[in-house]
Nucleic acid binder design. Structure first.
Lengths: 142, 142
DNA sequence: GTTGCTGCAAAGTGTTTGCACCCTG
DNA sequence: CAGGGTGCAAACACTTTGCAGCAAC
């Protein structure tokens, strides 16, 4: 396991009077190893292989904990389930979601960000976060 | 009621062997009169005033019908419920969602759209739709 | 040995569906 | 009067919560 992330988690945990458990370690390990935008169910099924007794509720609770500690980011692509990505793994990015195969391509475009700021300023709006999803067909699904 | 929209609905209905009912009229009327981004529950509560016997399921079914007929657009701001807006009322736009008071400001920026196309092309991705939400604080909530 | 954590099951959300009856066309 | 529409309640999918026993510190 990458010591950097377990450190982040342990720091958060000790600061908040919480405890490290083998379930939390297991969820964190799988979360760090699997690809971005995992759903809870997907993660749960992987964790089950190393921690067969773990409950789905624990996975939900641990992902909430990872989100609060800043290790995970919660995403919603409108498909009715929460998905998570590692916040450390990349700086902010947006998503192209292929409606054919479900593949998610990440991207950023500095000018798009710039014009977002511009339009916000025009409306006297202070952006704290944003979310840009392009839906369509990827190269393979065209 | 605006005759334009009832025409669109009736055309869709007659093309698909469906029927006009007073419930559908009532939902359409309220939908056209209320502000954009209504949730189903909000709409339901307003419709109840003129159609006290209507069921929530009918509102869901009618909104699905309006969406299929092209009158309504389904939105998801990640708050766990579907919201709808009139598709005729405006051309495409994006949203600034105030996390303080819930206000939604609509906007478009031609250059943002342009750079979306550009980045899609670089990834050989064909955009069918997109969704840009800025979250933050509006003028009044800063 | 406290106090937080876990697994389980039950409860909660928002949404959809099955069905008998009703109403439009 | 046939076939779609309605209201109701049950079913659904995803997520959260209450609780008794368990484990980390």
């Amino acid at each position: 396991m990458d010591s950097e992330e377990i450190d982040v988690l342990e720091e958060y945990i000790s600061k908040n009077n919480l405890k490290i458990t083998k379930q939390r370690r297991a969820v964190l390990k799988v979360f760090l190893e699997c690809e971005n935008h995992v759903s809870v169910e997907e993660l749960y099924n992987i964790v089950l292989k190393t921690e067969p007794k773990i409950g789905l509720a624990t996975v939900y609770r641990t992902l909430a904990l990872l989100t609060k500690s800043g290790l995970a980011l919660e995403m919603d692509f409108g498909d009715g389930q929460k998905r998570y990505e590692c916040s450390h793994r990349s700086v902010h990015h947006d998503h192209m979601v292929c409606t054919g195969c479900g593949k998610i391509i990440e991207f950023t475009h500095p000018l798009i960000e710039k014009y977002q700021e511009e339009v916000a300023k025009q409306n006297k709006f202070k952006i704290t976060s944003h979310k840009l999803d392009l839906f369509g067909l990827c190269q393979d699904c065209k």
